[in-house]
Nucleic acid binder design. Sequence first.
DNA 1: TCTGGGGTCCTAGGACCC
DNA 2: TCTGGGGTCCTAGGACCC
Length: 420
Amino acid sequence: MSLALVDCESFYASCERIFRPDLKHVPIVVLSNNDGCVIARSTEAKQMGIGMGVPWFKVKDAFLAQGGKVFSSNFTFYGDMSNRVMNILEGFVPKVEVYSIDEAFLELDSLEENYNIYGFGCHIRGLVKQWTGVPVRIGIAPTKTLTKIALNEVKRLNIPTKVHQITSTKEIREALANTPVNDVWGVGRRLSEHLNRAKIFNALQLADTDPRHIKHKFSVVLERTVRELRGQRCLDIENNLTAKKQIVVSRSFGARVADLKTLRPIVSNFAVRAAEKLRHEKQKCSQVSVFVRTSPFSDHKPQHTGYKTIELATPTNDTRDILIAAKKALLPIFRSGYDYAKAGILLSRFTSETSKQYSLFKDPNEPKENSKFMEYIDQLNAYETQVYFASQNTKRWSPMKQNMTSPKYTTCWYELPVAN
DNA sequence: TCTGGGGTCCTAGGACCC
DNA sequence: TCTGGGGTCCTAGGACCC
């Protein structure tokens, strides 16, 4: 019984290399929105000591001085490359769970009879590399939590094939003994503090603790983790058909915003984007929440966080309804005198697009919804925004700073790579 | 000067019901 | 003086993930 976890090596940094062979051994980092902090590093950049999530301005000078290359994030491009990788995996394995933009779980149970699983992993890795240029690593083990451990072993032992399988009790226990407890999937900062206090420092010690005791002392979530570490499968490969339960659009601003006049169109932009995502999911929402907050890093200044939820009488995915709700939520939470650094909108309480539930106080025959209208808008705006709502800020996501983005090599005609 | 964005699951506690 | 108990549903907040 085997599962595999495939993860793309330094994914965003690797993407930036695909059409830039000149960057093969050059240290690369990719930055978050506003070029705020480092969200991906190539192996060379990691070796230079560039940490995950560090503010760019703190490492910028040293990194560039040593010949590093920096990119703003180009999620359109990364998303397209991710789809290509996932499509290949789905072509070879009947059950694939796309877990994140750069990771997928594979169920190999049904292949075990006819294939050598380790060899199969190596084969897939070769094909993905050849067809997309993306280097992947593969961890193979009996449970999801253990595939994460196997993958860590690829890194820790620097396994040249980048594929590692742990099956026997001996292999598993050895890998666990070499894994600090905070590297276990599902154990974050808070839990590992607690576990350390209980004299549990590595994954083997955690696995050897009675799961019932863990459930009593901690939670059912950690109990599952313990069972998974012991080889008992608690988490299945899930198909990716399960509907989303919430949609969030939020951004930090490139510059602080102190007045409602500037803030309102920004929030409207978020609302428009969120409504698009909602229609794409074929869902309707009946709750719209808006939040604004100052920067927790400028602690000498007065801080404020505002959050407000608006209930909608009838579920909707019409941008106009969501815009109205967003404005209604923003008004009471905005306070003048604060420098806001971030805002966002959250849509929740979904119902499927096709089911209709009318308000008691509304005439059910009233042709209120005009879904065709939204359909046309979506078509017009599919590749680039052509049509704006009056309350939007037409200066795209402004104010946001970003100026080191690579071309959309694979999704935009005007930015295709050119071979001379 | 400059610190990401988008999700999930679980739990405790309040509201409400009979 | 005396003031139930058990159940469900919902929400906010915490912890985690990439």
